[in-house]
């Protein structure tokens, strides 16, 4: 059983890291966005492995279902850069600087810190063999309306503000939009033109 879990963890970790590498390295922006979705999936699978089912489902719902769709939409609305051939990464010394920053952060800061820290992981809860009593969606829901009520409301306000802000920022003036007439509108226009012709002809 332990071996199975370790194997699954290895696969999920490889998926997350591999997909993330493809996101930053691939030339085609659309492909990058698709790899990003694969990476989100991997993170969702990791949540499942960590027994946070609710978060795994929310991860798929929000990241895969909403954010990645938004990103794909934005890429398609800002075309011309999706093709191959265009240089996607910064060039020269700046590229090497960013590589150095990220690699050093990982190798010098994160890994030694994680390795040297002594984590006191408590033993599994509950009796041996039985499923552990973990905090589930019911506890989360209760927490949101009692302990974290203020934060919950603030998050709601933030989302509303972001929604309105996004609409205002991306709004295009009506007059600047190119407009194609529908058949009904064309018909109505003709009717009006004919009606305005009539008194002129008298």
């Amino acid at each position: 059983m332990t071996l199975v879990i370790q194997l699954i963890f290895g696969l999920v970790a490889a998926l997350i890291i591999g997909a993330a590498m493809m996101v930053v390295l691939v030339r085609n922006v659309i492909h990058a966005a698709l790899w990003l979705i694969a990476c989100f999936f991997g993170v969702g699978a990791l949540y499942l492995l960590l027994q946070a089912e609710f978060l795994a489902v929310v991860q798929v719902l929000i990241y895969v279902g909403a954010i990645s769709i938004l990103i794909l939409f934005a890429i398609m609305l800002t075309r011309q850069v999706t093709g191959e051939g265009v240089r996607q990464l910064v060039g020269g010394w700046r590229l090497w600087l960013t590589v150095a920053i990220s690699a050093l952060l990982f190798a010098v800061v994160i890994v030694p810190t994680v390795a040297s820290q002594q984590w006191n992981v408590p033993p599994p809860l509950g009796p041996e063999g039985a499923p552990e009593p973990l905090a589930g969606p019911a506890e989360l829901g209760r927490g949101f309306v009692s302990e974290f009520l203020l934060q919950f409301e603030v998050a709601g306000v933030l989302l509303t503000v972001a929604l309105i802000g996004a609409i205002v920022v991306a709004y295009e003036e009506r007059a600047r939009r190119r407009r194609v007439l529908t058949l009904a509108e064309e018909h109505e226009l003709r009717k009006r033109a004919a009606a305005s012709d009539q008194p002129a002809g008298d």
Binding site: E53, V57, V60, L61, V64, G65, S68, I69, L72, P137
Partner: peptide, 25 residues
Amino acid sequence: DLNVGLLFFFAISSISAVGLMMAGW
């Protein structure tokens, strides 16, 4: 019998939108 079954249903159904986008593009 997932304890988040209904949410799971909708989360999973939103994935196919990605597939449609891929097909169209």
